[in-house]
Nucleic acid binder design. Structure first.
Length: 548
RNA sequence: UGACCGAUGGUGUAACGGUAGCACAGAAGUUUUUGGUGCUUUUAGUUGAGGUUCGAAUCCUUGUCGGUCAACCA
């Protein structure tokens, strides 16, 4: 059954289970709560859950863990489904924990009948007080020994809306002196008169996570229920409930959440960034959300590669953002169409050119079948301001008076003269071109000191460029003193609106990824329109030079 | 100072009693009509102390450090 060697401890477990004949095939599930957008941490969980099922010939369910109606919404359901699909995974079924509310109620009644659950009248504060502490045993609720009949009647009355929120709960009768706080008679049901995004106002009692998750797993016959480390203490409750109920014994396994430095990876914190307008939305390109990364131009492939390289383990970890950048560049280098865009234009006049010359330039040197595009070389062009230097430096790759340089895909030009404005600032540069130096058919023999990107002033189109920096100034905002928002990098967005692009970029769509030569990888923003063409910088080119 | 989980280069991850390897990051070189890409080389690691063993990252004991748990959240 197994294809390759297990590459992590989860796969080792599955390997062993399959070999032992414990299961014929496996079923996993990805169980998001629809109360926020998916982020890189979820991507790791998605890749793991769908990945192992694929590898071992099993299936994966998408299950919305929608047991808390006050925070959940269909907006999130829609975005989650879109994100999972975009990442490239297909679920066998879409389920909702709310699909099982009736069954869960029956399970609860069974527990009551077995004497394993009771209705408790204690308030939240009272329950907290009698719960004890990690080093001190708790005390029994005075309602712990109600009769089965009384519990049954009370629980039914809870369902019927006879009590107010907080007035009564259903609790499992386990062990108030357990060293595991979660085993001290955990709540199973609470009363909430809230409108549920799917069941509407049908219910006023809702199961807690502990009484929904494992039961849902069991109903779906999930073989390997993979969750994050913080659920380790829940496993004891998970197993206890399944055993008492006598239902399909799904098993829970835990792995470490994936984090990335210089950002935060919690829905609660990301929600704050959105609500307090530190970013423009869940899909702001600076956000580590799947939708944010997608909008920025990061590909699903790159995210999957990143998750694979980040690996699966049982210890808390923080991955370096540079690993993600590497995965993005590796992918984009292969597929991005090369284009030229000048961010800060400097006019260059080719004084000996009296015609327009049509050029064909390759779309991607890494892709033989990438084809070419047409560009016009004209006697007035723009280069990058910083690509002209007045003071000669050692090892320069720039334009300089008296020196020759190549214009990418076009000709070698000799820089002759700087024309100045009244205030002595540079107005334009005058050059002459070598007619026999055309790219690909150069017979000039002229040595150049580098190659520059350029655009024709006649044909160039204005574009807006949005460049992004890390969202936080510190590696791990959650670990710092005080509020994580104190460490927000207020310069994380830089908008360039002086940029001029080669005309082919008018046709850019969201199916294209671009490399603007010598600038980085860029992707059309969803706010782009024919009158304002906007590109997001996905990631810069690797730069070994500016550091030296 | 309870229970549970964990500890391998800067970061992440392998090794399943038998040569500590890989990737990212860093450094050096090379190629290059992108200071990109490619290619070559290279720096750097087993949490401390004891034990078991011919042999320990791995097994045992113990210390240290980190994380989690006392939401009617998931």
């Amino acid at each position: 059954m197994e294809t390759d060697k297990a590459t992590n401890f989860i796969e080792e477990i599955i390997d062993a289970d399959l070999k032992a004949g414990k299961y014929k095939s496996i079923i996993t599930r990805f169980p998001p709560e629809p109360n926020g957008y998916l982020h890189m941490g979820h991507a790791a969980s998605i890749c793991l859950n769908f990945g192992v099922a694929q590898k071992y010939g099993g299936t994966t369910n998408l299950r919305f863990d929608d047991t808390n109606p006050v925070t959940e919404d269909t907006e999130y359901v829609d975005s989650i489904m879109a994100d999972v699909k975009w990442l490239g995974f297909n679920w066998a079924n879409v389920f909702y924990a709310s699909d099982y509310f009736e069954q869960l109620y029956v399970f609860a009644v069974q527990l009551i009948q077995q004497g394993d659950a009771y209705v408790c009248d204690l308030t939240a504060d009272e329950i907290a007080a009698q719960k004890g502490t990690p080093t001190e045993a708790g005390t029994h609720s005075p309602y712990r020994d109600r009769s089965v009949a009384e519990n049954l009647a009370l629980f039914e009355a809870m369902r019927d809306g006879k009590y107010k929120e907080g007035e009564k709960t259903l609790r499992a009768k386990i062990d108030m002196s357990s060293s595991n706080m979660l085993m001290r008679d955990p709540l199973l049901y609470r009363i909430k008169f809230a409108h549920h995004h799917r069941t509407g106002d049908k219910w006023c009692i809702y199961p807690m996570y502990d009484f929904a998750h494992g039961q849902s797993d069991s109903i779906e016959k999930i073989t390997h229920s993979i969750c994050t480390l913080e659920f380790i203490p829940h496993r004891e409750v998970y197993d206890w409930l399944i055993e008492k109920l006598g239902i399909y014994p799904s098993k829970q396994y835990e792995f470490a959440r994936v984090n990335v430095n210089y950002t935060v990876m919690s829905k609660r914190k990301l929600l704050q960034l959105v609500n307090e307008n530190h970013v423009t939305g869940w899909d702001d390109p600076r956000m580590p959300t799947i939708s944010g990364m997608r909008r920025r131009g990061i590909t699903a492939n790159a995210i999957r590669t990143f998750c694979e390289k980040a690996g699966i383990a049982k210890r808390e970890k923080v991955n370096e953002f540079s690993l993600l950048e590497f995965c993005v560049r590796e992918e984009l280098n292969k597929i991005a169409l090369r284009r030229m865009v000048v961010f800060q234009p400097l006019k260059v006049v080719i004084t000996n050119l009296d015609k327009e010359i049509e050029l064909n330039i390759e779309n991607n040197p890494e892709d033989e079948n990438g084809g070419t595009r047409q560009l016009m070389f004209t006697n007035e062009i723009y280069i990058e301001q910083e690509d002209f230097v007045e003071v000669a430096q050692k090892k320069i790759f720039k334009m300089e008076v008296g020196q020759a340089i190549r214009l990418k895909g076009a000709f070698i030009v000799q820089c002759n003269e700087v024309i100045r404005n009244a205030d002595h600032s540079i107005a334009e540069i005058h050059c002459t071109y070598y007619a026999n130096s055309q790219s690909g058919q150069d017979t000039s023999g002229v040595k150049v000191q580098g190659t520059l990107h350029w655009v024709s002033s006649k044909y160039a189109i204005p574009v807006e460029i949005r460049e992004y920096d890390r969202l936080f100034k510190v590696e791990n905002p959650a670990d710092e003193e005080g509020d994580f928002k104190d460490y927000i990098n207020e310069n994380s967005l830089n908008i360039v609106n002086t940029a001029l692009a080669e005309p082919s970029l008018k046709e850019a769509t969201l199916t294209h990824h671009f490399q603007f030569l010598r600038k980085g990888y860029f992707y059309l923003d969803k706010e782009s329109n024919p009158s304002t063409i906007i590109f997001n910088k996905t990631v810069g080119l690797k730069d070994n030079w500016s550091k030296k």
